[in-house]
Amino acid sequence: MLLHIALQEGFHHDEVRVLVDAREALANGDVTTRRQTGYAGSVDLDVTRSPVMVEVVLSKRGVTQRKSVSVDRPTYVGLSLTMEGEVVWKLSHEPFGYL
């Protein structure tokens, strides 16, 4: 089943690791949001069980967060950062669109 994880708003030269069930799904040492679109990067995974544990690690900010995500149908996870550096999770069953 499709699990799409997108890095969206608020990233600025961040070092980002995303793990799904403790396996590295995305790792990038310099993630910056393109402000015209609010998009910074994404990864598509084919997962075989649900739920999965999604963990995001922002090492420069010293932030680690994890969330259990149900993937019983195509699932889209958006990760954004607030001005205070907190991670905001957005779950959807519709693809994200950027403009």
């Binding site: 015209q36 679109t37 998009y39 693809p95 994200f96 669109g97 950027y98 403009l99």
Partner: peptide
């Protein structure tokens, strides 16, 4: 090239003079 999830973009952040060009992608999610 990003795919159907990009409906349009002000692509011109290239070179010294930004914001001169913008694009709309008719076959995207829009």
């Amino acid at each position: 090239e990003q795919g159907t999830n990009l409906g349009g973009i002000m692509f011109d952040d290239i070179g010294p003079n930004h914001r001169q060009g913008t694009a709309i992608f008719n076959d995207s999610f829009i």
